[in-house]
Design a protein around this nucleic acid. Structure first.
Lengths: 237, 237
DNA sequence: TAGATTGTTAATCGATTAACAATC
DNA sequence: TAGATTGTTAATCGATTAACAATC
């Protein structure tokens, strides 16, 4: 039971990477309740995963547990945060100060997860010069200079689909390395740029397919089983 | 090369389901350009996928192509839309008329993808009675009655995390079958309810991990290769 | 100690990719 | 016809799960 050394290059399956924030979320809850140790079977019960999978995932972070006692909650939280890079804050510029942009600007909780949006940009003269959730709305033209000066590496696009590509182009010229894209377009970017698309239409596909499947089979439609006691945990995506 | 019959129950891998909207997006672009036929190698080149994978995915929709000529663009679009249930509109109630809710309410494009948000609900007296993008903002208390009367099966939660669970509970009591959850909490729901979480923190995990990895290895940091011509297609998520 | 839980190797499962016959 | 592309079976790959020794 010696601790295994890290995978080279820190490779980790996407699926594991997606689960880590969920563990983190639950662990923070546990910590708030004053729980100090946790086993993978407990985590697994909460998140509907088999314990060994949780263990595998946690091993990517490099943490070691102790047989019989499990893991230290505090240490585990710390380890996940540091593995995910949530300790050193990424500063980001956001382009598109519409409703979605405003919602993200107001999301104080992001700072706990390594993200600080430091300014917003727009081309709408009515918005430029205003402040949204204590962040200045600046003219888009200022982005390149400021990004360079402030060493910003992360861009968030909440602009309309039609202008998303040109926004991305400017971001990349300005030295931005990663883009969180909320516009419903696939951006064309150089290889070295990392793009994460927040793809609402894929979500919609899952949802509508599920609903369609449900009503086509008709199994669930008319049955009114609201009164039955049911397990309070469903498969979520 | 006889057309294979559908998988029983219409089973389809999640990954394929996620790719279908991307094919759809590209196909609509092609159609707009007046292209009438398409091969899987063309689609694959555009989306960075091998042709056989595209073919596999498309087969889940039941479409058949023709050797040498490929697929009819129009027919393929239609088939994907009907497979995903985008032809018969799902009407939805949205709870939480904040910035994010407002953004979704204003997203006209959803209607093309089988989603119509018919009303918003909130508990804030200042918002109740107003209209957002032509949709009424109603008191949350009215939701159960209206959902029943209008036969609404889909709920969208854009309310704050603290109240998301109680909103979900009410939705479920009201007969809602599927929930699109934008609040950063895992909802506890009965088995029969389908929940799709729009999990921004997972996204953030990918992003910050990627950025951290980049700067730790240091490979890309100082190199200023902006001038180099590079392939205009990166791996996106 | 006995029992619970970790770390790790091996088996299983499912999705992706390769190979190739069918066919337009 | 020859060449391109589909549909399909088989091989590969990667992630999940099972099994189990180590150990607190």
């Amino acid at each position: 039971m010696k601790p295994e050394k890290h995978l080279p290059g820190g490779a980790i399956p996407q699926a594991s990477l997606r689960r880590l924030p969920q563990y983190h979320h639950y662990l923070v809850e546990l910590e708030a309740k004053g729980v100090s140790r946790v086993s993978t079977s407990l985590i697994g019960r909460e998140l509907n995963l088999v314990p060994v999978q949780v263990r595998k995932d946690l091993q990517y972070t490099g943490i070691v547990g102790r047989p019989k006692t499990g893991y230290e909650v505090k240490e585990l939280i710390q380890t996940i945060e540091s593995f995910l890079g949530w300790n050193n804050v990424n500063e980001a510029f956001l382009v598109g100060a519409g409703n979605l942009g405003t919602a993200l600007l107001g999301h104080e909780r992001f700072s706990r997860f390594g993200l600080r949006i430091v300014a917003a940009f727009d081309t709408d003269a009515a918005k430029i010069g205003s402040w949204i959730h204590d962040k200045a709305v600046l003219p888009l033209d200022k982005l390149p200079e400021l990004a360079g000066r402030m060493g910003i590496h992360l861009g968030i696009i909440t602009a309309p689909a039609e202008v998303a590509q040109s926004v991305a182009d400017r971001m990349i010229e300005a030295g931005i390395q990663a883009i969180w894209n909320f516009a419903p377009v696939r951006l064309r970017v150089p290889e070295r740029i990392f793009v994460h698309n927040e793809d609402l239409y894929s979500s919609l596909a899952s949802l509508s397919w599920k609903l369609a499947a449900r009503f086509h089979t008709g199994l669930r439609h008319e049955s009114d089983d609201l009164a039955e006691p049911e397990p309070q945990r469903s498969v979520q995506e």
